[in-house]
Amino acid sequence: MILRMNTIRIQNYIALFVVIVLVGVVFVVANVVQSGKSEIQVDASVIAKKTLFFRDLPDGSVGVISASSGKMIAQVEGQAGFVRGILRALARERRIQQITSDDAFELMSRSDGRLTLVDLATGNRIDLESFGRDNAAQFAAFLNSAGQ
């Protein structure tokens, strides 16, 4: 009888252990699933905004033109890898959606330090500070240039 009670007691401990492990697994899985969800971040207020056109020029450079004045405010020459890379990505999306390249882009500086480029034709946006301060500064120069 003593041996039998020990066997029952051992089985109870094993059952309790299995239940605890299963509960732990459920909590871990729930945590992993929850952490994979993206949270929508509310945009900070806009402190500066400029609507721009980017045009290919005959000499191979890219002209940055203010939409409000029609004046060229900057000229991107040579490789200018980051600026050209961002523009290529946005132009590719326009080609996929069969949208002409005549529509403008909106460049916004936000109160939290973010710099956002929005393609007004497709609605795509790129948070430029995600690529580093130096890369974002190349676009920030367009906000600070004359030719409103």
Results as ranks from 00 to 15, higher is better:
residue 59 D to Q: 08
residue 57 L to E: 09
residue 84 R to W: 03
residue 132 G to Y: 08
residue 19 V to N: 01
residue 82 F to C: 12
residue 6 N to V: 09
residue 34 Q to M: 10
residue 131 F to L: 03
residue 17 F to E: 05
residue 37 K to M: 08
residue 140 A to E: 13
residue 144 N to L: 14
residue 8 I to N: 12
residue 126 I to L: 15
residue 4 R to W: 04
residue 16 L to V: 10
residue 109 S to R: 12
residue 114 R to C: 05
residue 124 N to C: 02
residue 145 S to Y: 08
residue 106 E to W: 02
residue 130 S to F: 07
residue 29 V to I: 15
residue 118 V to I: 14
residue 109 S to I: 00
residue 33 V to N: 04
residue 145 S to I: 10
residue 48 A to P: 00
residue 51 T to I: 05
residue 127 D to N: 14
residue 16 L to D: 15
residue 112 D to I: 04
residue 73 I to D: 08
residue 138 Q to I: 01
residue 74 A to Y: 11
residue 20 I to W: 07
residue 15 A to N: 13
residue 3 L to S: 08
residue 21 V to P: 12
residue 135 N to E: 09
residue 116 T to H: 02
residue 58 P to I: 01
residue 26 V to G: 03
residue 2 I to A: 13
residue 114 R to E: 14
residue 70 G to S: 14
residue 102 D to L: 12
residue 37 K to G: 00
residue 87 L to N: 03
residue 89 A to Y: 12
residue 146 A to C: 08
residue 26 V to H: 06
residue 6 N to I: 14
residue 54 F to Y: 09
residue 23 V to K: 00
residue 53 F to S: 02
residue 27 F to A: 13
residue 56 D to N: 04
residue 105 F to K: 04
residue 105 F to R: 06
residue 54 F to D: 01
residue 38 S to F: 09
residue 16 L to H: 05
residue 30 A to W: 07
residue 10 I to L: 15
residue 103 D to M: 14
residue 86 I to F: 00
residue 59 D to L: 11
residue 76 V to N: 05
residue 30 A to G: 05
residue 11 Q to D: 05
residue 108 M to V: 11
residue 132 G to L: 07
residue 87 L to A: 09
residue 131 F to W: 04
residue 71 K to G: 01
residue 45 S to V: 06
residue 97 Q to W: 02
residue 13 Y to P: 00
residue 136 A to G: 09
residue 23 V to D: 00
residue 109 S to V: 02
residue 101 S to P: 06
residue 140 A to W: 01
residue 36 G to R: 08
residue 57 L to D: 06
residue 125 R to K: 15
residue 76 V to Y: 04
residue 24 G to P: 07
residue 57 L to P: 03
residue 59 D to R: 07
residue 47 I to M: 08
residue 50 K to Q: 10
residue 65 I to Y: 11
residue 49 K to E: 15
residue 102 D to H: 08
residue 70 G to A: 10
residue 126 I to H: 11
residue 87 L to C: 11
residue 98 Q to W: 01
residue 10 I to A: 15
residue 7 T to S: 06
residue 21 V to L: 15
residue 8 I to F: 14
residue 104 A to P: 05
residue 17 F to V: 08
residue 43 D to Y: 05
residue 89 A to H: 11
residue 6 N to R: 13
residue 141 A to H: 07
residue 37 K to H: 14
residue 46 V to H: 02
residue 144 N to K: 15
residue 73 I to C: 10
residue 52 L to P: 01
residue 140 A to F: 02
residue 146 A to Q: 13
residue 80 A to Q: 11
residue 123 G to V: 03
residue 73 I to R: 10
residue 55 R to Q: 12
residue 99 I to Q: 13
residue 46 V to M: 05
residue 48 A to H: 09
residue 116 T to M: 14
residue 1 M to E: 04
residue 108 M to D: 03
residue 60 G to Y: 03
residue 2 I to G: 15
residue 140 A to Q: 11
residue 122 T to A: 03
residue 21 V to Y: 08
residue 75 Q to S: 14
residue 32 V to T: 08
residue 7 T to M: 07
residue 9 R to M: 12
